Amino acid sequence: MPLTTQIVLFDGFDPLDAIAPFEVLAAGSDEAGDGLHIEFVSAEGPRRVVSGTRGMALEATAVLDPDLPGHIVVPGASGPIDGDPDDGVDTIPVLLNRFSQSTAGPLLKRALDNPEVTVATVCGGSLVLAMAGLIEGRHAVTHALGMELLEATGVKAVHARVVDDGDLVSAGSVSSGLDLGLHLLHRQYGSHVAHAVEVLFAHERRGTPWLSPTADRAAGREEHA
């Protein structure tokens, strides 16, 4: 059964956080020829989802399914950093917290409990999981401006472009969605597919991914197999 990558959209999401992994994973699947299914989903089901950047919208075509083997990618939010929520200003922390407390929270918990699913995040996506109380004690990264908040929730914040904690993979700033996608390709298909997509996109991954000891040993076995 082909794996599925579900990219979760929510009101106020950051467009590049969603599009960058989509493009990279689609190109990698084409290179590998395995028919990886990639779709935009939402916790509410099919709907038009408006991002936080000038009203740009994407179409969610299905409901988030935590039982599907594969990846679930959680983007961050786009919006003002400063402002008073009491005055109706939807700052990025407000958008992320609202999503974390929505019907998506229990679905993401089920995904993290599913050994056949890898949950991946871009930028503020890890804060969504942290605000929902789902990754306390886990290793993760977020945007530089959110690292203190990540630590305050009990997450072991790691200053790296990509942090691989086994079934939880996170990436830092907005553009790191490209690197997240390439890292997932490397994990799933090997370095030759990831490299082919790097050449196609004229983008080389930045920095060394931080791997948990378990993930590091597994990667080492794969590379030398």
Rank of each mutant, 00 (worst) to 15 (best):
D167Q: 15
L168E: 01
L168R: 03
L168F: 11
V169R: 02
V169Y: 04
V169C: 00
S170Y: 00
A171I: 04
G172D: 03
G172K: 05
S173Q: 01
S173E: 13
S173W: 01
S173F: 04
S173V: 05
S173G: 09
V174P: 01
S175W: 01
S176D: 11
S176H: 03
G177D: 06
G177L: 06
G177H: 04
G177S: 07
G177P: 03
G177M: 04
D179N: 03
G181H: 05
G181R: 05
G181Y: 05
G181D: 01
L182N: 01
L182H: 01
L182D: 03
H183D: 04
H183C: 05
L184V: 02
L185G: 03
L185P: 04
L185K: 02
L185F: 10
H186P: 03
R187C: 08
Q188S: 07
Y189T: 10
Y189R: 05
Y189Q: 02
G190Q: 00
G190V: 08
G190S: 02
G190D: 03
S191C: 04
H192W: 05
H192S: 13
H192T: 12
H192D: 15
V193N: 00
A194S: 15
A194D: 11
A194W: 11
A194P: 09
H195P: 06
H195S: 12
H195L: 13
A196Y: 09
A196S: 06
A196R: 07
A196F: 04
V197R: 06
V197Q: 05
E198I: 10
E198L: 10
L200S: 11
L200W: 07
F201D: 10
F201M: 11
A202L: 08
A202M: 12
H203C: 07
E204N: 14
E204L: 08
E204I: 08
R205K: 12
R205I: 06
R206H: 12
R206V: 15
R206K: 09
G207I: 10
T208L: 12
T208W: 09
T208D: 11
T208G: 07
T208E: 13
T208Y: 06
P209L: 11
P209M: 07
P209W: 09
W210F: 11
W210L: 08
L211Y: 05
L211A: 00
L211P: 02
L211F: 10
L211T: 13
L211D: 04
S212Y: 08
S212W: 07
P213S: 11
P213Y: 11
P213E: 12
A215G: 07
A215F: 05
D216G: 08
D216H: 12
R217G: 07
R217D: 13
R217P: 06
A219E: 14
G220H: 14
R221I: 14
R221Q: 15
R221S: 08
E222D: 13
E222L: 15
H224F: 12
A225Q: 13
A225F: 11
A225I: 13
